[in-house]
Design a binder for these strands. Sequence first.
DNA 1: TTTATTTACTTAACCGATTAAGTAACACGG
DNA 2: CCGTGTTACTTAATCGGTTAAGTAAATAAA
Lengths: 337, 337
Amino acid sequence: MENVTIRMLAERLQLSTATISKALNNSHEISEETRQRVLALAAELNYVPNPYASSLRKKASNTIAVVIPEVADSFFAEAINGIEAVAQEKGYHVLIYLSHENSQKEQTILKDFQSGRVDGVLISVTTETTAAGLEQLVRDKPVVFFDRVCEEVKAAKITTDDAAAAYRATNHLIAGGCRRIGLLSASRQLSISNKRAEGFQQALLDHQLPLLPNAITYCTNDSAANHQLLKTAFLENNYDGIIATTEKLSTAVYEVCEALQWRIPDDLQVIGFSNLSTARFLHPSLTTITQPAFEMGKAAATLLFRALKSNNFPLQQQQEVIPSSLIARNSTLAKDK
Amino acid sequence: MENVTIRMLAERLQLSTATISKALNNSHEISEETRQRVLALAAELNYVPNPYASSLRKKASNTIAVVIPEVADSFFAEAINGIEAVAQEKGYHVLIYLSHENSQKEQTILKDFQSGRVDGVLISVTTETTAAGLEQLVRDKPVVFFDRVCEEVKAAKITTDDAAAAYRATNHLIAGGCRRIGLLSASRQLSISNKRAEGFQQALLDHQLPLLPNAITYCTNDSAANHQLLKTAFLENNYDGIIATTEKLSTAVYEVCEALQWRIPDDLQVIGFSNLSTARFLHPSLTTITQPAFEMGKAAATLLFRALKSNNFPLQQQQEVIPSSLIARNSTLAKDK
DNA sequence: TTTATTTACTTAACCGATTAAGTAACACGG
DNA sequence: CCGTGTTACTTAATCGGTTAAGTAAATAAA
């Protein structure tokens, strides 16, 4: 059986396609009786409207894009859950794109959005992304940045309290007796990385602790390379405390400690930015800065849909900071929360 | 600036829209000189074709759908990575839909696909799904099931060696001295759950061990309820070994053991189906059946794209079983692999 | 009773690309 | 010199909805 179109419905009911369309869209121009007849036949023939025809004409796709570096990180996985929950409720479709931490790929993805394929975009940028490629996108259509935002771009942003979280993390290590603290950063570019670094440095300053010359290690996206990088950094700096600012780096710390036979927390206290539900079962259980990933995704999507609904909503001025929480476990010694 | 269309290019170059379209699609009907002029102007004006116009006419969307129960499970997260990698390479777009383990929602999602929104579907069904709702989908368009397949439906399937994996897991526990082994199952319906149960029972049989009356616990999708369910089952059956057939259930076992103050592996040996990269750092490190999630996603997508390329490809006959591996760690006692 | 308004439709243009069918200009073999 | 191809285009229909503008009939207002 061919695909059922509006024209087929029209012919069967001896009505015009316009009437069918309006009936299906609950236009007040259509009598209740006719509407019911249309709806009945549509149900009977299992009519499903062609989204491409509709999108073409209406210049709206009922589709949003989610652009993230990867999904294999429980933060992004949870964020997608939050986004999808809102999108499903609003009847929107979600296109997912992975930039694989590659700003070139990201640019290619974003360029395609000029086609009108999506009505709005939720994005968490790569570690390499600069403002340049984002300006146009933000000018063109509703965009909400979440987690990995781009400071220089004026746009809606959902973040966590990155500086404060790092500050708390550092304090926590200091309270646990650490004096040679290192920070593992994912990027020199990312504003959230820089904010975390700032919070870290501020805490050291406030406690009159010196910033080690190599206190901050900038990691790459290659886990083998990172492993080597960390090993070297650990040995050279003889840290007694470390803050891993991403989930992958948290795991990497455990690996390197195992390789170096450093005991956590005796030789090295560890605190990691992570959303792993298994953090409490790690050996030793990992003290985490846990971001409200699901809520952040939900908040970002909610903001976007609000902008899509009323186009005079001042989306670009929206900023929301959702606090993260420090959960003290056995990879650190301090008792405070 | 308005969106650049093919007509604008045509007017500027004093050519017909047909010529522009053909030039952009590398038709042999167009002279090299003209093609270059078109390409140059398109690049200059930053022309991006409207996908909806093109899809409407060509009746092909260059888009596939991925329907999964959720992403907050490292198996699905990794699988998406695999799928997206292939899709990006082939120039396809990926719509993601979460069924939230709800077959009603799943049906709603699948029904929409009759609209022609997507050219093909990759799906891992819910714990409740029955064959009924899937027949039509498979008839309508290319579909590849992965991991959670539906046995009764004749369609392409990518799975792991579920029965064999459970058989190995059970053997492993027996080798470690377990005699009262339980299995935590995610569903009564799911074929992969049933296969895992079969492998489990076969191994018991082969070792002349009795199947405990409540050897198999069927869990729900509610983690609080599961917690209670497991607690009761553990206490009633006094297991000395347990196989958790999903990642979430693996974590749940750790939680329940903590609550009951059962020590792993002394009081209970645990083996879990899981793709967590942190399994080795759990306390104690978790013996896992690890599925090649990325590869499965990749294989499923590859199969789908092959079918999309040549429509005489016998997709429905394709079956691929990608072996999983048992990684022995400290949550079990056996030394074998 | 006449005019204005409302109701319930229809007609036809339109969204932006693709493509079947048509054509003018030119080349070439016999 | 004629017919047949080939090249490089154009014309116009088409995909399947949506919507501005039009209309006939019924109803309300003057």
